[in-house]
Amino acid sequence: MFEMWSFPFMQRALLAGVLVGFLSSYFGVFIVQRGLSFLGSGLAHAAFGGVALGLLLGVQPLWVALPFTVLVALAITLVRDRTHLAGDTATGIFFAVSVALGVLFLALRQRYTEDAFALLFGSILAVNAVDLWMSAGVALLALAAMPLWGRWAYATFDRDLAEADGVNVRRDDYVLSFLIAIAVVVAVKVVGIMLVAAFLVIPAAAARLVARTFFGMTLLSIAFGILSTAVGLAVSYRLDVPSGAMIIFTQAACFLLALAIRR
């Protein structure tokens, strides 16, 4: 049972999965409660545009995807802030433009795009030391920003009340968007562009069904995010099936369980 964890590639996969599971499910509570579930998909596809640009330029794709996705996240926040457009509308626009740019960059590259395909579906078993350090760095940043949890939560409940109490909700929104963007980029390497949105949404949605408080929802979401990654990884090894998909199935099982026992 435990022998699988003796392989270095499985240890790296578990560690990366746990870090990404933590990041996605922590930020996921704000995404779910603010009704921004589409944002995860939008930013993952923005990362695709950035990865494609990196491939075209012949540099490490994630180093291009990181600033590219952060810029898109900040642009979405800016459009949401300055116009009356709904968050999902702003996301939809940048989503489409990023994918179009990605397709254009890949076409300009005129070479086989295996790397891009791996990023679409993730490669948790091929996680390397750089990916791990990057995930750990982003997780540390998220931990350092933990004191903002109470302000983000307050603005999630009621922006006016938070603002009236002296919370700078606009600045906090930009910080949150920035952190979600870099969490999405590191998650893309591990779980793939197609499945990142699930990582951001399912654990938090499952936690919302059973939690009485927002703090409880946050803790439960993190627990679901981390546990489902470890369990999904182990099951995928046993059954020899794709890891990313199996992790999502485990998260979906958590959601169904929460649906069954919710008060």
Partner: peptide, 21 residues
């Protein structure tokens, strides 16, 4: 729809942020 119990809502007025534990 926000997951909260009444005392948390009350304490948000004291702390100027949402209360944790």
């Amino acid at each position: 729809r926000f997951p909260s119990i009444a005392i948390e809502l009350v304490l948000s007025g004291l702390k100027g942020r949402w209360p944790g534990p």
